[in-house]
Design a protein around this nucleic acid. Structure first.
Length: 826
RNA sequence: GCCGAAGUGGCGGAAUGGUAGACGCGCCGGUCUCAAAAACCGGUGGGAUAAUAUCCCGUGUCAGUUCGAGUCUGACCUUCGGCACCA
């Protein structure tokens, strides 16, 4: 034990026994069971479900405890609240654990789920366990398959070649996280890329709809910005450069540009290394060099390739393309800063007006021709790319126009001549669904030599994941070597067929799990439409900001596609979103075993009880900012709950033996009602840290009046009762126990949240700050409703103000009602 | 690199453009005790000063807007998060 641990404050009540007592009682009485037919308005509040990694981390508590407090608050506001929990149970870690420990992924996952269920129960949350969703079970994943087929039938699922990261030594596909500095994490072999036929969802068909956030009620601006940037809509022109001289099928290279106004400045063309025209256009004398370059480029990650810091590299392929606007022949290069996944995979190089092209031209000594003249241009050679506005120059008939005018005019001309067209490009790419792995939902498709690619008939679902599959890396996709799985019959002709052996991305599971929570036992479809329609959309979603662009975009796409298939009549899955931050170790670093700063929730809950841990996590700081755990800091919360316990144990009748001070009664009343108002507002906004701070202030005040015996028992009883109700959502066990001790009827969690009276919360007197030239010089106590003239007069009469005015002329007096007077002199 | 966020006492943090540092930790002093812990009471940004009088400085840096800036604007510095097969 460390010195700090010895100084730990202990609860003065048996926290563990109270936790257990009430968790069992609530379970027995099923007070958190959610009834679809409850007449109160429905409120669906979800927190992102956890991956069953093994043990509940304090980070899970940080995500779950405050969201439970918020959901409890909504319950106390009179809503029928659905606040469910489940497990995101497919995924790579189960397979890694299986490989390293020889346990089947199913067993590893389900034993983790079992353990985490127990740990999650210790939170004392309002989860209705009858609605738990575990998505690696066939009852769940069969509907992934059902949805996949629906999307396929709708034309939203298609197959195309796509590169995967490949380890040539292990002969297996790697996830990005299995690659460390360009080598395989298992065997240190440099990685390569291979093209596989894989399944995609056409999320790009929904790009513009996904950019429309109008029907969302409250999402953080930063998430909207990240989604907007991720989708990356660019308006520009798709324009062809003529290559008809080469006698190949393609007669032009299609490029995409947002700066068609700079087309007269094109001095080269760059193709992505993966561009299909590269092998066809490369001259024989350049082929060896080009091929070597492509091999090297394909090993690099996209992040590296796009890095502007990195030296631009490329190779001339020995071919030229003609710029139709000025009939110039420009050289064609292959370079890895151009990506095949964006635009057309080819760009026109305009070094004078694009920073990347400028760096490239400098390196390969390509001409740099200014075609947009900056205002007050000195005509000298450029030392960097000029991306601003200006006048068209060196641009034939367009010279003298502003570049905005030139842009419109050139685009019109290009379109008229049939050389190109106005178009929109997105950075967003289609959603790659296929994973060459075992532990996921089998993709329900069959390949027949005669009939082609066919979906498994609905009546044959689910396509079960075979239990006996070899999931260790062998160079093949795990399901591909399982003959009894692969071999099937064609659903069309009855002849031999082969099953698809890839599984689905786990983001498929999380794209619709909110629907399953509404009617989790329903067996005739993924969800029962009527009840689900009553709960959906989710009114409040909480989770980490790391899901800003993938999960949250995929589920939005999913719901919109279901709507368009007539399966559910809503536009968005989540109306409000709140992102909690990250809990750090007490050393302010991310928690990790190697740093030794990991906090085990079972340990601290066993020592202080669930409520102290819940409250401390909420008290650390603003929930969206995260913050460091502190072994010393939790003492403050334990001490506070002890003080609360003390106060609640007092016998209020003792107060009536002493004279009552009307000022103390009025102060108590006012502070109580101000606290209710503050808690109500701040709980609504997830500002738990200030909720607890204001409850502490109320407790401090109640301690003072108890010590002074200055209020009557009625005032005391009203105050303590309302205090406990405000404590209930954040500390459900202690508040329930004290509620019982004070003789109130079970359960505190079925009571409404207290309301405040504005008149009782109002201040009669306020402190008016008096400034001279913006510096505080005096504070005067005045009636709350004081008028401007009286306030200004009082301020000017102040001795301290007079000393600073010091005979100088008063030029202005600013009065902010209820706040301050600022006397401006000089 | 691109995109996003954040910088306030010894520490976590509070503050509709209007008293900077609420609340808590820690620390200091006191009460209680044989003693310690716990508990309770009081103090606690820095500096000048005999002073709880008064004055000056103070919210990453430098400018700006304003009667008034932690808060708004611009530039810069630092730290953190995401970047499409971790989920």
């Amino acid at each position: 034990m460390t010195i700090i641990a010895q100084r730990q404050v202990e609860p003065r009540y048996d926290a563990v026994a109270i936790d257990r007592k009430w968790q069992e009682r609530w379970e027995k009485d099923r007070i958190y069971r959610v009834d679809d037919n409850d007449p109160r308005p429905k409120w669906f509040e979800m927190t992102m479900y956890p991956y069953p990694s093994g043990d509940l981390h304090i980070g899970h508590w940080y995500a779950m405890a405050p969201s439970d407090a918020h959901a409890r608050f909504r319950r106390m506001q009179g809503y029928n609240v659905l606040h469910p929990i489940g497990f995101d149970a497919f995924g790579l870690p189960a397979e890694n654990a299986a490989i390293s420990r020889g346990i089947h992924p199913y067993e590893w996952t389900m034993s983790n789920v079992e353990n985490m269920r127990r740990q999650l129960r210790s939170l004392g949350a309002i989860y209705d366990w009858d609605r738990e969703v575990v998505c690696c079970l066939p009852e769940y994943y069969q509907w992934n398959q059902w949805f996949f087929i629906k999307l396929f039938e709708k034309g939203l699922a298609y197959r195309a070649k796509a590169p995967v990261v490949w380890c040539p030594s292990c002969q297996t596909v790697l996830a990005n996280e299995q690659v460390l500095n360009g080598v395989c994490e298992r065997c240190d072999t440099p990685i390569t890329r291979r093209d596989f036929e894989q399944w995609f969802f056409r999320i790009t068909d929904y790009a513009d709809q996904l950019l429309d956030f109008d029907t969302l009620e409250d999402w953080p601006d930063k998430i909207l910005t990240m989604q907007r940037n991720w989708i990356g809509r660019s308006d520009g022109v798709d324009i062809g450069f003529d290559i008809s001289d080469y006698g190949i099928e393609e007669r032009e290279i299609r490029t995409f540009t947002t700066r068609i106004d700079t087309i007269f400045g094109v001095t080269f063309i760059v193709l992505a290394p993966e561009h299909p025209l590269v092998p066809q256009l490369t001259s024989e004398s350049r082929r060896a060099e080009v091929d070597a370059y492509i091999d090297q480029a394909r090993a690099a990650s996209e992040i590296d390739r796009l890095s502007a810091d990195r030296d631009k590299t490329g190779v001339f392929i020995g071919a030229y393309a003609r710029n139709r606007l000025n009939n110039e022949q420009v050289p064609i290069y292959v370079a890895d800063y151009v990506l095949t996944t964006y635009g057309t995979g080819a760009v026109m190089g305009v070094p004078a007006h694009d920073a990347r092209d400028f760096a490239f031209a400098l390196k390969y000594r390509l001409p740099i021709r200014t075609v947009i003249a900056p205002i007050e241009w000195d005509g000298l050679a450029q030392t960097e790319a000029y991306v601003g506005v200006g006048f068209m120059t060196n641009s034939g008939a367009y010279d003298g126009m502003t570049n905005e005018e030139g842009s419109v005019a050139i685009a019109r001309e290009v379109e008229r001549r049939g050389w190109g067209r106005n178009t929109v490009t997105y950075r967003l790419r289609d959603w790659l669904i296929s994973r060459q792995r075992y532990w996921g939902t089998p993709i329900p498709m069959v390949y027949c030599a005669d009939c082609g690619v066919l979906p498994v008939p609905e009546s044959d679902l689910p396509v079960l994941l075979p239990e006996d599959a070899e999931f260790r890396p062998t160079g093949e996709s795990p399901l591909a070597i399982n003959d009894s799985f692969v071999n099937t019959v064609c659903p069309n002709c009855g002849g031999p067929g082969r099953r698809e052996t890839d599984t689905m991305d786990t983001f498929m599971d999380s794209s619709w799990y909110m629907l399953r929570y509404c009617t989790p036992q329903f067996s005739d479809g993924p969800y029962e439409p009527e009840t689900t329609g009553e709960w959906m959309p989710v009114r409040q979603y909480t989770g980490g900001a790391e899901h800003a662009v993938m999960h949250l975009l995929y589920s939005r796409f999913f719901i919109k596609s279901l709507r368009d298939m007539g399966l559910l009549d809503i536009d968005e899955p989540f109306l409000r979103l709140y992102n909690q931050g990250v809990i750090l170790g007490s050393d302010h670093e991310k928690m990790s075993k190697s740093r030794g700063n990991v906090v085990n929730p079972d340990d601290v809950v066993g020592q202080f009880g669930a409520d102290a841990v819940r409250c401390f996590l909420m008290f650390i700081g603003p929930w969206d900012q995260g913050g460091p755990w502190s072994d010393e800091g939790i003492n403050g919360i334990v001490r506070w709950l002890n003080r609360v316990w003390n106060l609640m144990e007092h016998d209020a009748r003792e107060l009536d033996a002493h004279p009552t001070d009307p000022v103390a009664v009025r102060d108590t009343q006012r502070i109580l009602h101000q606290t209710i108002r503050k808690c109500y507002d701040d709980l609504d906004k997830f500002k738990f840290n200030t909720v607890i701070a204001s409850l502490m202030e109320l407790v401090n005040h109640l301690s003072h009046v108890w010590n002074a015996q200055s209020v009557d028992s009625a005032t005391w009883n009203v105050s303590t009762e309302k205090f406990l109700l405000m404590l209930a959502p954040i500390a459900p066990h202690v508040s329930e126990e004290l509620w019982e001790i004070k003789g109130h009827p079970y359960s505190i969690h079925q009571q409404p949240f207290p309301t405040w009276d504005e008149e009782l919360a109002a201040d009669e007197e306020i402190t008016l700050v008096v400034q001279v030239n913006g510096r505080v010089r005096d504070r005067i106590t005045v009636a709350a409703g004081i008028g401007a003239e009286d306030a200004q007069q009082l301020a000017l009469e102040s001795q301290r103000v007079q000393a600073h005015v010091d005979g100088k002329a008063v030029r202005n007096v600013v009065y902010v009602p209820g706040r301050l007077v600022n006397v401006v002199v000089g």
